[in-house]
Design a protein around this nucleic acid. Structure first.
Lengths: 334, 334
DNA sequence: GAATTCAACGTAACCGGTTACGTAATAAAA
DNA sequence: TTTTATTACGTAACCGGTTACGTTGAATTC
């Protein structure tokens, strides 16, 4: 076993209290003692145990992050942002991959409870009542990232409604009037981003006097695969569509891929715009236009909020970040 | 504060030892007592502290994973695999994003040391002596994932040499003789995958009597961006290349993207093959041929090894997994 | 010279579990 | 009936830190 603070104390002829004070810069010791103790620490290669510390301090310097998957670029960007600010404040992050499964999520919450994490960020996931109740019992700060909630929980989101509106408007202003939208799971995301995005789409249509036809909206899930499937279905139902608004870039990439397979040229035959502006967009053939939602900022914001709550115990304000149209080559004027 | 084992013990009129025994199924108590204690636990919503447990057990049920980035699909697949088996055995994983920086890596190792993790997986990173020495001092099981090492550390890798050979051979057998390769950072990966892949490439050339020209190998880094930059450079130097072997799929995707920008048609003008077979490949335009290295398996294997080492304290064997050519549409016969 | 203050520590309880060891009561064996 | 084994616990030390409180000696104040 590694050396403990008592070993250090003994070897330096001081008490453990003094060693602890020195380690934590609390003052109450002479320079001579400090030197001596530091020397012994060096010599023994002593490294204090975070576990023991955690026991008395009730701080583990660990936060949990719940994500529905790990392979989407969006999540990767979230993780990167969170991880980066966590590292700055000396904390580490436990990632939990819930696969959107309720059971797995609850198991993770228990695990994190047992680990006595300092705070929790839930990303791109609907906060079910079951989760919320449990987290309240855990008594741990919570921030939602890219998710709404009916419960009183601080969140950071983009203005999805507005962003979807902008995307749709962009399509319309390029002369398109036969628009389709491919969205994610309706039920699962009832409190998430899907509804606002669909509504932003619809509002843009109605603002520009384009009739809304619900058969022009396809609900699938959120992966690239789902994008390819959905385009086929949507086009079967509405062969005359000239522009597609994909609820996220993964779906958009799927659309591009499906179009390629089907021999449909983008943007000549059909225009596509995605949303999120993940890194991949600019490397597609053709590069995919999108709405940038500054995920890194969102993630850093969320992480900042969590640590603020942890430090100060205070409430924080919700945060709604802006968006920006990124024109590339997947939309053409009609 | 939440209730402790003492609260439970008091309320149930037993000792903490009995509660602990019941919690851990150690026997030595009557059914009546067990019922009573479980009732009290339920009533108080008592949940044992992993921290306190960790202190006595010297087990934190937490492993650390060091990754050079979070945005590459490869890493995402690794994380998914690791996370999945960790969850199965009731452990959680702390991800550390080193950004390939030595300083950050050392800071992370210290953090993980302080956290007293049970084990460590280092993915796609060269194990520098500095790291190795520190980990030895930490006295914690270590497995390398997709990385070689001169130190006695178990690793799981693909047979990179063979895989690169297969990719190159595939190009050659499709009639190509003007081959270029785009590789990653030479210095940083001197002990990693780069060298074997480059050598597999070269061996295939020489086996098929194609002269090896070092100017046909471009060294960059590993991202999509690097892929696009590298293709330009490589093509400037060697305008007559008809096929490109990209050391990984990210580079391959960059190549596809750069070709599109340059107005070069793939595979008509130039053929491309990548390596790793990340999920994205099949959604590219055109779908990118690649060598499948079964990353999920690799990751699960690595995780399995770590937990075996943790449980049994025994050594484990290295693991070298196979590969498979995945033909899509980015290579054409010449 | 006596009283007060302060720096520089030490002592020991505490955080919330685990566990070696001891003990009382009952059952089985001699 | 006495001895032994077994079950069902309780006691208290321990894991490795932190910290409230007490103590000591020297410097300062009166």
């Amino acid at each position: 076993m590694a050396y403990t603070i008592r070993d250090v104390a003994k070897k330096a002829n001081v008490s453990t209290a003094t060693v602890s004070r020195i380690l934590n810069d609390l003052g109450g010791y002479s320079d001579k003692t400090k030197m001596k103790v530091l020397d012994v620490i060096q010599e023994l290669e002593y490294f204090p145990s975070g576990i023991a510390r955690g026991l008395t301090n009730n701080r583990t310097h660990t936060i949990g992050v719940l994500v529905p998957n790990l392979t989407s670029s969006l999540i990767a960007e979230f993780l990167t942002g969170i991880e980066s600010v966590a590292h700055k404040v000396g904390s580490s992050v436990i990632v939990c991959h819930t696969e959107s499964q309720g059971i797995k999520t609850m198991k993770y919450l228990q695990l994190l409870h047992e680990k006595r994490i300092d705070g929790l960020i839930i990303a791109s996931t609907v906060l079910k009542e079951e989760y919320y109740d449990y987290i309240v019992k855990m008594n741990v700060p919570l921030v939602l990232l890219s998710a709404y909630s009916e419960f009183p929980v601080p969140y950071v989101i983009a203005n999805d409604h507005q962003a979807a509106y902008s995307a749709t408007k962009h399509l319309i202003q390029n002369g398109h009037s036969k628009l389709g939208m491919i969205s994610g799971n309706k039920e699962e995301w009832i409190a998430g981003n899907t509804i606002p995005r669909v509504e932003g789409f619809k509002r843009a249509l109605s603002d520009f006097n384009i009739p809304i036809d619900d058969r022009c909206i396809e609900y699938g899930r959120f992966s690239i695969e789902d994008g390819v499937k959905s385009l086929r279905k949507l086009l079967n139902r509405n062969p005359d569509l000239t522009a597609i608004f994909a609820e996220n870039d993964e779906i958009g990439i799927g659309v591009l891929s499906a179009a390629f397979e089907l021999g449909i040229s983008v943007p000549k035959d059909i225009s596509v715009i995605g949303m999120d502006d993940i890194n991949l967009c600019k490397f597609m053939n053709p590069p995919l236009s999108s709405i940038s939602l500054s995920h890194n900022e969102m993630a850093e914001e969320a992480a900042g909020m969590i640590f603020k709550m942890i430090e100060s115990g205070s409430k924080v304000e919700n945060s709604i970040l802006g968006h920006q149209l990124v024109e590339r080559q997947s939309v053409r004027s009609h």
